[in-house]
Design a protein around this nucleic acid. Sequence first.
DNA 1: GGCCAGGACACCA
DNA 2: TGGTGTCATGGC
Length: 227
Amino acid sequence: MKKKNDRSPRPRQRLLKIYRRLEKAYGPQGWWPAKGDFEMIVGAILTQNTSWANVTRALDNLQRAGLLTPKKMAGLAAVELGGHIRPAGYFRQKSRTLKEFLRFLREGYRGNLEDMLASGQEKLRAGLLGVRGIGPETADSIVLYAGHYPVFVVDAYTGRIFRCQGLIAEGAKYAEIQGMVMAGLEPDERLFNEFHALLVHLGKTHCRKNPRCEGCPLIRDRVSSIS
DNA sequence: GGCCAGGACACCA
DNA sequence: TGGTGTCATGGC
């Protein structure tokens, strides 16, 4: 017999414990690192399987060329756009994805970004997932960080850290990990924003450099951890 | 010179 | 449905 409130207390407590420890260790992250919604979206596409340092180079190129608006970027041929975003890697694919996104924005919302973002969490997510080159992580990042809807973003670091913490099984898929978090925590845009940002921060600054987890802020009561 | 980085998709069995 | 190859640049 299921309880009325489906949120089981154990994952919830463990998730909150992780969140609080990271918050204490690293402080507020203030994500997403972008000046506006369009830059956020472009960054989300450019960062697919790419280090953020390379993304910022590509964003700088676009900024210098005055291309960080939907209108300006839409007026550019895919090949030319690819030239600007080259430092972010996969530039042909990402150039096409950006153009596909701009087409979605134009055809669905007459190019109005605010209208698109205000269209509602489910509609926005489904629409973005319909854009070739935008998958669940990129769509959810946009829904959360530009749309400000309470959806939890799963990325490679999240999966790695939650596996390490024994919260999810080896091979758990995106929807499974996301479902675990969203069933465990109340929908809270600010919490999901900070939580994801903190997990990425832990992954970048710690996990990547310490595969044996020495000094991990999430491990205080264990000598070693699953590597 | 190899490995990895804030994924997504096509193709095949 | 799951496994594999492909896309590409730049830092370590």
